Simulated assay, not measured.
Amino acid sequence: MQTAAALTMVRDDTFFLKLWLHHYGGLLGRENCYVINHGSGSRVADMARGCNVIGIPGDPHRNFDMKRWRMLNNFVMGLRCYYNHVIVGDVDELVVLDPEAGSDLFSWLKTVPTNRVLTPLGLEVIHRIDVEDERIEDYVLGPRRHVRPAPHYSKPCVVSVGTKIARGGHFTQYDKLHTPQHLYLLHLKFCDMTAYSDAMDRRNAVTAATGASVKEAAIGRHWFAETRGEDHEVFAGFQALRMQEGFEMGPLRRHMHRSWAARGSTGYWAFERAETDTQYLLPERFNRLI
């Protein structure tokens, strides 16, 4: 059995795909990276050379998320036959290991028992446009150092057991919660205002092509133009988040465990996703990690 594979699905999001490929391709080797190319775009195929690229049709569909996660579920379960761990998520989500652990993610995964689901703590990298002028080229962390807690992105995304993953990747039917101390999921949607605007233009076009409203479609609300707001105001608003001293994430993980419970009668398990109005400065040891 190989140690780990990474799996994502992407449609024309080349800014985030570049970061995803640099991160997982460097850690796991491109031969262990699986990119589902929604729409079989040539730019995605060219960028992901050396990975396992799977082209699929890109026709607009109002049940996009349901179809996508049904397929990802099946891919994850298939890859488990050949890998101890499968990391699955959106192209703008990267699992990282705090350098304080004294290891890289791949080496650390070699030591992690199988037959479980790992849930990294979700942190959203935010572009503080008032103080961060440097453009993102090869690395995000360094030019961007601010993060806000994102319980919505504390996803059960490192899978080594047979289970079902819910639409969006937010829940599984695995009934135990494993939140390793140094493991994080960094959500990059807001890491750069220009990249955000470009990505939202594309996603708004996808939802418009379905002809469905927010209530009629199985697609995240954040993909719809009517929920978008004004981009500059969104990023300027990050200044109002309360800056916290230090980088102590233990209380956030403990809250996850205290509220862990079955999600009704769905078969899924979850913790309470309490939103906060806080932000943190990442320690310098994270610079150039992604």
Rank of each mutant, 00 (worst) to 15 (best):
D12M: 12
D12E: 15
D12N: 15
D13I: 00
D13W: 02
D13F: 07
T14W: 03
T14I: 14
F15C: 01
F16E: 08
L17G: 07
L17I: 10
K18A: 14
K18R: 14
K18S: 14
K18Y: 03
L19S: 08
W20H: 05
W20V: 08
L21I: 14
L21Y: 03
H22I: 06
H23G: 10
Y24T: 11
Y24S: 13
G25V: 11
G25C: 13
G25D: 04
L27V: 07
G29D: 00
G29R: 03
G29Y: 06
G29N: 01
G29V: 09
R30P: 02
R30A: 09
E31I: 06
E31Q: 15
E31D: 15
E31R: 15
N32R: 14
C33S: 08
Y34I: 06
Y34P: 00
Y34R: 03
Y34C: 01
V35P: 03
V35D: 06
V35T: 09
I36R: 04
I36Q: 04
I36W: 09
N37S: 11
N37P: 10
H38R: 12
G39E: 09
G39V: 09
G39P: 07
S40T: 11
S40A: 15
S40E: 09
S40W: 00
G41P: 01
G41Y: 06
S42K: 05
S42A: 11
S42W: 00
S42Y: 00
R43T: 12
R43Y: 04
V44Y: 05
V44K: 01
A45G: 02
A45M: 07
A45L: 07
D46F: 02
M47P: 04
M47H: 04
M47Y: 09
M47W: 09
A48P: 06
A48G: 10
A48S: 15
A48V: 05
R49M: 02
R49Q: 13
G50K: 11
C51W: 09
C51I: 07
N52M: 00
N52Q: 11
V53N: 01
V53P: 01
V53T: 08
V53Y: 04
I54M: 10
I54Q: 01
I54K: 00
G55E: 02
G55S: 14
G55T: 01
I56T: 09
I56M: 04
I56G: 00
I56H: 03
I56Q: 01
P57T: 05
P57G: 13
P57F: 04
G58N: 06
G58P: 04
G58I: 06
D59S: 12
D59T: 14
D59R: 10
D59N: 14
P60I: 01
P60E: 06
P60Q: 05
H61Q: 07
N63L: 13
N63G: 11
F64D: 08
F64L: 08
F64T: 02
D65F: 06
D65S: 13
D65E: 15
M66A: 15
M66E: 14
K67F: 10
K67W: 09
K67M: 12
K67D: 06
R68I: 00
R68Q: 10
W69M: 03
W69F: 10
W69E: 04
W69I: 04
R70C: 10
M71D: 02
M71G: 02
N73C: 05
N73A: 08
N74V: 03
N74D: 11
N74E: 13
V76E: 06
V76P: 07
V76Y: 06
M77F: 10
M77P: 08
L79R: 10
L79W: 09
L79F: 05
L79A: 07
R80P: 04
R80G: 12
R80K: 15
